[in-house]
């Protein structure tokens, strides 16, 4: 389960609009309780490292950027607990591609951006058997 405050939601929606028609991406920084519940304290936007001609339908985060974000979060006493990205002109539903590359025990926030305007925002967690995403927001 994910707890996402209004400030973080607004920030993710703004990132999606700013990146349109490309996909935006970034980190969810926060902590995890003993039952696995995740609480977001803030987001860290990061450059979409996909090839220029692929950015409209793919995102990729460079491992160097992950390492830097992890250290920044750690310095603030936080962890990387998930990721966000946008789906330009598509629903806020994970794709098969999202499923193939998903990590366990993390939240995946998706914001739909239609014609440049942020729309629905959802969050998903990979099932234990990796067969599907379970919606948590």
């Amino acid at each position: 389960m994910l707890s996402l405050n209004a400030e973080a939601i607004a920030a993710i929606r703004a990132e999606g609009e700013k990146a349109y028609p490309d996909e935006c991406c970034g980190f969810l920084c926060g902590d995890t309780d003993e039952k696995g519940g995740r609480r977001v304290e803030g987001i860290l936007p990061v450059a979409n490292a996909s090839e220029r001609e692929e950015k409209f339908h793919r995102f990729r985060i460079e491992p160097d950027d992950f390492l830097a974000a992890s250290r920044a979060a750690g310095a603030a006493g936080l962890d990387i607990i998930g990721f966000y990205h946008s789906h330009p002109d598509h629903p806020a539903v994970p794709s098969e591609y999202d499923l193939q590359l998903a990590l366990p025990c993390c939240s995946y926030v998706i914001v739909a951006v239609g014609k440049g305007m942020a729309e629905e925002l959802t969050s998903w967690e990979l099932s234990d058997d990796r067969s599907r995403f379970n919606q948590e927001l």
């Binding site: 789906h87 330009p88 002109d89 098969e96 591609y97």
Partner: peptide, 19 residues
């Protein structure tokens, strides 16, 4: 030694669907 997962995803629609 730090373990760093690669992160990727996206819509991955067909090229003709590009806005």
């Amino acid at each position: 030694l730090t373990l760093v997962p690669a992160i990727a995803g996206g819509v991955v629609c067909e090229p003709e669907q590009k806005p």
